[in-house]
Design a protein around this nucleic acid. Structure first.
Lengths: 401, 401
DNA sequence: CAGGGAGTTTCTAACGTTGTACTTCCAACG
DNA sequence: CGTTGGAAGTACAACGTTAGAAACTCCCTG
């Protein structure tokens, strides 16, 4: 079935190494030779055997993405973005679902489940700060999310505190004063995790506006699924707490809460204004459409893939671990009194289909110490990310701050 | 960093092949030897190199899943189920997004994008019946979805006509007579594709009930995204067409339509009863919750993976292509007048973490012609699927038909 | 026209694993 | 007691690729 370099070499009447040189775009091949080889490749429909290439080169051209569950919208959209970003480099993605269990996450770090991959993007949900030393694994690893900070690996994440503060300020800005929160962590509220960081941002906004921090307004919910958003909202209503706005720590909780508000006959945004977090596609289409924080998922995906690949190709002394933060923006929709028309399907650029034979290769400068081009590019992008954030309001204005 | 069989063999004082035998659970190894080898493996933290194994054995233990886009809920949930099913066999999944372009789908079939995979599960969206001969590819391929029938490959899919008919009967059963449809295909309405099959089921139900087929009630929408569901519903309302029920050909269209109905002040289910198709998680949490057809996604995933793996391990003459249909059920919710409480998060069984070293191996009987055990198991399951379908109503009753 | 050098091509040895063929050993059997 | 057969272990050759060094062309120069 599959033909090999040998077959091509025989047909083209050259040595197997010459064929390899042609396939790998080695520059010093006589045009006439290249031509012969290419037509033999064509004739035999030759495809390089990636197992052999992987064995020889130590690289497979596949990275792993370890996430809790694809059926959570946030992760499906993240995976989508990451697969696109990886595809732009000709790299494949194996998805590993940890089912949000500690066991599953440990299995990721142990490398058992690392199948044929050159490195892993890992978004833990159960592991926490105490497990930071487990991150010293023998393969390139880039961390996503908020569970662990200051570890030995690169880390790409979002500005949780600042963006949660901005979300709260968005609610304060439309005149709300009693702002409930759903999604706080039930147990350890000092732990570093999205929930606590976002609550901190919420609190900072209250403080800055001179509003009191009322613990009866801050509700726990875990995991962040619709069900639990609905349950928390029902409790909030049952308890008779007075509130005029709601900040849910992610969108799915918000959609559940919206549902419970609807059942209870509470009007949104008239009685209660609602903002979520994540800006998943779905939030645009709830009734009413839900305002949200867009944490910059595409940028996170792009930067995470770039960072991982540069680690995979890194030579010599490893650079110190980097932490990279993406931009965020506030998206105002009906649930906070902004209206946004539903337009037809926004076009999504399809990836350019690439030369299927070539290997992605990092040019090695003579110094070899210096970071490869892609490294510098992503470092530059990272700097750009660090430098500014932009808040976009629904009316399209941009506010640099 | 990584240690090899050689290292383990040296430490254990045995030959490299004996280590290989231990790793692969070859039975004829003296317990004491096995013990020595295992402790050497432990000591060195040995992990088999999958590229080398893949090169030697011709198999990588990874399959491909080619779908339009992960951010479409249906595909995210399908991918989730497929990854779980593959994981149960110790097999990894590389996801390839075609962006729902013909170009992308052709690239899947050309094998260019088949990275390091033993076979591919492919859910085409743009290719159609005319492309059936393109399915003669040189690698194991299992088709999902409704775009192409009667091809040279195995095909796992759902009972579109019957289940759409059942959905329509569900609406008729609650007394509706003017049933609109959203999601018909804009161009070729005879082509074999989900849209047309489901419309056919709708029509069969009307015929059986003696209701007229009114083309003004049947609306096109493509692709099946929320936006387009909302747009189609607005048009339907603008056109002043009289209708008391809506069958959307998938859930996302339905959620968009629900949104447009809400905007227009139309009450669901009082004025218009709505049922969708796919039973994605989201439909349980819309306002109101949306009835749907559950097409048996988990079963499809399980059977598809089993089928693909049995093809990958198949020896000798290939068996003729099989077509396998999953069971469906109708899930009644508020949008058709059924109520369903929102419960706390349903437990999802986490996969058992498996022996990380062992290879999945098909026992070879002496006859070698006969299908391997797994083949027979999945064939049996397939027969079971073919034999019966069950309609579950919201009240929990089951109806065998 | 010999010598040098850049450009081009070939030779050969890995990469880490598994299958085949082979040896050795021991127990059971006639 | 010799033979047989299976269990237990070993040696070695692949699998298809790439890297490094060696070798072979040219063409240019002194």
């Amino acid at each position: 079935m599959g033909s090999t370099l040998h077959d091509v070499a025989r047909i083209a009447g050259v040595s197997i190494k010459t064929v390899s040189n042609v396939v790998n775009n080695y520059p010093h091949v006589r045009p006439s030779t290249r031509e012969k080889v290419l037509s033999a490749i064509e004739e035999l429909d030759y495809r390089p055997n990636l197992s052999a290439r992987g064995l020889r080169s130590g690289r497979t051209g596949v990275i792993g993405l370890a996430i809790p569950e694809l059926r959570q919208n946030y992760f499906a959209e993240l995976a989508d973005s990451i697969i696109r970003a990886a595809d732009a480099h000709g790299v494949g993605v194996v998805i590993d679902q940890t089912s949000a269990t500690r066991e599953g996450e440990l299995a990721v770090l142990s490398g058992e489940r690392l199948r044929l991959t050159d490195g892993v993007l890992f978004s833990p949900e159960r592991l926490g700060q105490d497990d930071v030393n487990l991150l010293n694994v023998g393969f390139p690893l880039v961390l996503l999310g908020e569970r662990i900070f200051g570890g030995p690996t690169d880390h790409v994440t979002m500005r949780n505190v600042e963006s949660a503060r901005a979300a709260t300020e968005h609610l304060i800005g439309i005149g709300r004063r009693r702002i409930a929160v759903i999604g706080a962590h039930p147990v350890n509220q000092d732990d570093i995790r999205s929930a606590n960081l976002r609550v901190r941002g919420y609190r900072e906004a209250l403080d800055a506006a001179g509003l009191p921090y009322d613990t009866t307004l801050v509700r726990t919910a875990a995991p962040w699924h619709r069900e639990n958003g609905a349950v928390a909202m029902r409790r909030l209503l049952e308890d008779g707490v007075d509130f005029d706005a709601l900040f849910t720590l992610n969108d799915t909780l918000g959609l559940g809460a919206l549902r419970a508000l609807g059942e209870a006959g509470v009007r949104v945004p008239d009685d209660v204004a609602v903002i979520g977090f994540d800006n998943i596609d779905e939030s645009r289409f709830s009734v009413p459409s839900m305002s949200s924080v867009d944490p910059g998922r595409d940028e996170i995906a792009r930067v995470a893939v770039d960072t991982l690949l540069s680690r995979i190709h890194e030579k010599g002394e490893p650079a110190p671990p980097r932490q990279i933060l993406a931009d965020y923006r506030i998206v105002g929709r009906e649930s906070t009194g902004f209206s946004e028309p539903i337009e037809a399907e926004p076009p999504r650029p399809s990836p350019p289909w690439r030369n299927p034979l070539a290997v992605e290769r990092v040019t090695r400068g003579p110094g070899a110490r210096r970071a490869a081009p892609r490294n510098r590019a992503s470092a530059r992008r990272a700097d750009a990310l660090r430098s500014a954030h932009v808040t976009t309001l629904a009316d399209g204005r941009h506010k640099r701050g």
